[in-house]
Simulated scan of single mutants.
Amino acid sequence: MSVRELVILGSSSAVPTKRRNHNGYFLRWDSSGILFDPGEGTQRQMRYAGLSAHDVTHMCVTHFHGDHCLGIPGIIQRMSRDQVAHPVPAAFPASGERFWRRLRNATAFADDSPTVGHPLHGAEPVVFTEDTFTVTAGRLQHRIDTYGYRLAEPDGWRMLPQRLAERGVSGPAVGRLRSQGVVLNDAGERVELTECAVPRRGHVFAFVMDTAPCPQAVRLAHDADLLVVESTYLEREAELAATYRHMTARQAGQVAAEAGVGTMVLTHISERYEPGDDARFLAEAGEVFSGDIVLARDLERIPVPRRREG
């Protein structure tokens, strides 16, 4: 049975705390595993989460501030040590390629890693195209070049058993109807897919990290079933957020509301906040967003919600 879930490996911002590691997010998507923004300590967090280097099939780096990338050397060296054989494309802003090279070769090790750099150019590049999903990127508004990511499953069809029975389509013919769009039933009658199925929108996951509120963040998150979004500050620090080009929880909620998101995960929490502030993040985002809100906690596993209709 396929699994689609997000594993929070770290949820702090620039400085890790006793309860929040530097950033790190692992998206298990069926047989694929996409590692987003591996900050310092990600390799150890993966051990705690029961994840291995072999689980990583893709890597996406939003930008090259340390809390989003200092775990890259450990991950790559672990892949070499564990003899990961499958290729692991790693996306990152092209303007930071010098940092990628430094991190990729940070220490002396037997470099057998299958990781291949994939520098991103332009405003909205296509990053990866696989059989079951496509990852695109969008340029955000931070202090250095930063990309957010959007993983989208192709739209498909939901078969209607009652209609299939009424039209005399069963067994292998159902699969042919789904793939070919038309079959002949046992009576020799032509049956079209639209008679026995309704459109099913594909699953969408979005990852919007360090940025000021901007239209591109909304585009990346459009109709996402699950959005991971930075909410570094509470509203009382809105001026700081603007200065450093980050978002408050309320601003993150506004992005999710404008984008029509199903569930949002608030993360990238400043070290200034204590456990007693957690409820305020949820409350401030909830002032403008009526969907489900989760405040990220390290090592938490969050199932990708079911596809929404429409």
Score class of each variant (00 low, 15 high):
33 G>Q: 10
38 P>N: 02
98 R>A: 07
108 A>P: 00
112 D>E: 10
27 L>N: 03
3 V>P: 00
113 S>L: 00
61 V>A: 13
89 P>M: 11
87 P>R: 08
4 R>S: 03
43 Q>R: 06
86 H>S: 09
43 Q>D: 08
25 Y>S: 09
65 H>M: 07
36 F>I: 12
64 F>K: 09
19 R>M: 13
97 E>C: 03
60 C>P: 14
2 S>M: 06
61 V>Q: 10
110 A>Q: 09
10 G>Q: 03
58 H>W: 14
62 T>W: 08
90 A>T: 05
102 R>P: 14
110 A>D: 09
104 R>I: 01
14 A>H: 04
25 Y>W: 06
77 Q>E: 08
58 H>Q: 10
19 R>W: 03
51 L>R: 13
41 G>D: 11
75 I>Y: 08
8 I>Q: 02
114 P>I: 13
55 D>S: 10
78 R>C: 02
96 G>K: 03
89 P>A: 10
110 A>L: 07
32 S>E: 11
18 K>H: 15
86 H>A: 08
26 F>L: 05
106 A>S: 13
118 H>C: 13
61 V>R: 09
1 M>L: 06
55 D>Q: 05
64 F>D: 01
92 F>H: 07
100 W>N: 01
13 S>K: 02
85 A>W: 11
72 I>N: 04
111 D>W: 11
36 F>S: 10
23 N>F: 02
70 L>V: 01
94 A>N: 02
90 A>C: 11
94 A>I: 11
61 V>T: 13
